[in-house]
Design a protein around this nucleic acid. Sequence first.
DNA 1: AAACGCGCCTGCGGGC
DNA 2: TGCCCGCAGGCGCGTT
Length: 272
Amino acid sequence: MPELPEVEIISQGLQRLVGQEIVKVEKFRDKIRYMIPLYFEQKTENTIITKIIRRAKYLLIFLSNNVIIIIHLGMSGTLIMRDKSYQKQKHDHLIISLKSSDLLVFNDPRRFGIIDLINNNEILISSYFHALGPEPLTDQFNYNYLQNKLKNKKTSIKLAIMDNKIVVGVGNIYASESLFLAKILPHRLCNDLSIDELKKLVSAIKSTLENAIIAGGSTLKDYKNSMNQSGYFQHQFNVYNQMDVECKYCKNNIEKSIMGGRSTFYCLTCQK
DNA sequence: AAACGCGCCTGCGGGC
DNA sequence: TGCCCGCAGGCGCGTT
C-alpha cells in the first residue's frame, strides 16, 4: 500500500506516542510476511517509546530497553490509534496498549507487511537497511548521485527509480507521477537520459513526494493515516489510474502499459 | 553481476 | 445470484 508519503504521514502522526509507556502487547499470528519474533510481547512490554522515525518505507519505534520495533506496511497494512473501547477486527495482527489507554493497532489483510525487532546497535548491519539508497527528500539524492548511479544501467527509468538500492520510497504511484512531471516516458533507458532530463527527474521526484505529503498521501482503497483518515493526493494524479482519461495538459488520452508486472501510466504527448 | 519473473496473501469489482 | 479471473501502494528470491 503505502509509499514514502503515506509512511511519513503515519510517522508524523505517531510522534505523540514518544514518551509513552507500553503496558501490554498482543500478537495474533506467528507469521505475516516473515515470522514475528518469538517473545515479541515480553521484549516490548513495560518499556518507554523514546523515538519514532521513518527510513524508506519502514517505521522504527525505539524503546527504552534498546530494542527497536521495525514495522513495514507492505501493500495493505495500516497502523491506527484506537481508544480502549476498540474491538479487535479481522486481520489485526498486533495491538500495542499504552499506559494512556490508547491502542496502536497493526492490521494487514494481505500480510505482506513486516513486524520485527532489532537491537539499537544492529541498525547499520540490519539486512533491512544496509543496502538501501538515499532518502529522496535529502540532499544526498541529487543530480550527481543519480547520474553516477544510472550511467551504466540498462533498465527502464521507471524500474530504476522504484529500486530501493538507487533511491528509497518511490513506489508504483509516485514513479508514474514523477516521470510525468519530468516529461520522461517510463520506458526510456537509464543510460539514454540527458543531463537536463536527470535534473528534472530529481526535482520531479522531490516535488511529487512533497506535494503528496502535504495532501495527506494517496488513498486508493484502504490507505488510512494513524488517525484513520484518508489522504487526498489521488485527486491530484496526472496519470496514475487515469487510463483513457484526457491528459490535463494536452487533452490526449493517458496510456497504460505493464512494466515489471506493474501498471504504468503516461502521456505520449507530454512525455518524451 | 545485472536483469527479469514469480510468489507471497486477501479482497474486490467486472464479466459471464 | 454466484463463480472465476485479474488486479491491487512492496519486496525478496530464484533463474537466466
